[in-house]
């Protein structure tokens, strides 16, 4: 797995959505989600409209919808919270399938679930159509402090390297019969995290020396 060749969410393509300027895509994403969040929880026609806009963007980008849907599992824990909400919120009660639930809680939970889902779907669409490198360029264009852009750049560049290091440690543990299914295995996992920190920090020091030897003077140009 070569470094810098997309990431787990990126879907390679050449559609207009892929080609759009990254900083415009970032602004569009933030604007879109802000509008979604500002809509009242019972504004269902609006939500349908938002979903329609997203569906058009996804269709134009030619990213297969199942590709995005499979990655929506990140919001499952939050949907569990939304499902609990009608039972704990106060306000007038109504009966749904024989259960007494709060009416306002039910509306709020529906709104939460819809808004959260729209937000995740919009973010996934950006991630699927934009290379990490381009997201970085977009952020730079949006005047994110240079130092922050550099730190982000290092993180994106070394994510696969450190991830692969972690992967090799996992293989080494597994080949010695470690399965890690029990809280008693925490010390072993904790030492792995410790080793990962030492390796990452020392890699950072080596990268710094390599930069110095190529004329880096610490200024964020």
């Amino acid at each position: 797995m070569g470094a810098g060749h997309g990431h787990r969410l990126h879907f390679h393509g050449h559609s207009p959505v892929h080609r759009a300027r990254p900083h415009l895509k970032l602004l569009a994403l933030v604007g879109f989600v802000l509008v979604v969040v500002a809509t009242p929880a019972d504004g269902y026609p609006f939500f349908a409209g938002y979903l329609g806009i997203l569906a058009v963007v996804v269709a134009v980008s030619r990213v297969p919808p199942p590709y995005l849907l499979r990655r929506m599992v990140v919001e499952v824990p939050f949907l569990v919270f939304a499902a609990v909400l009608p039972f704990v919120a106060h306000g007038p009660r109504t009966e749904v399938l024989g259960l007494s639930v709060s009416e306002t809680g039910l509306v709020a939970a529906g709104g939460l679930a819809i808004k959260g889902t729209l937000g995740v779907l919009a973010s996934l669409t950006l991630a699927a159509t934009t290379e990490p490198h381009d997201v970085l360029r977009g952020l730079e264009r949006l005047r994110l402090p240079r130092m922050l852009v550099q730190i982000l750049g290092f993180m994106i560049r070394y994510l696969d390297v450190v991830g692969a290091e972690l992967g090799r440690m996992r293989v080494a543990l597994a080949s010695r019969g470690f399965d890690g299914r029990n809280p008693r295995h925490w010390p072993v996992l904790a030492r792995s995290v410790g080793a990962l920190f030492i390796r990452s920090y020392e890699r950072g020091e080596r990268v710094h020396l390599a930069m110095l030897s190529r004329g880096y003077d610490g200024s964020a140009r």
Partner: peptide, 18 residues
């Protein structure tokens, strides 16, 4: 000091991996 960019970048990567 001037180690900010590479070291903070690698430590952030570590936090992500951890």
């Amino acid at each position: 000091d001037d180690r900010t960019a590479p070291l903070a970048g690698l430590v952030a990567t570590f936090v992500f991996a951890a």
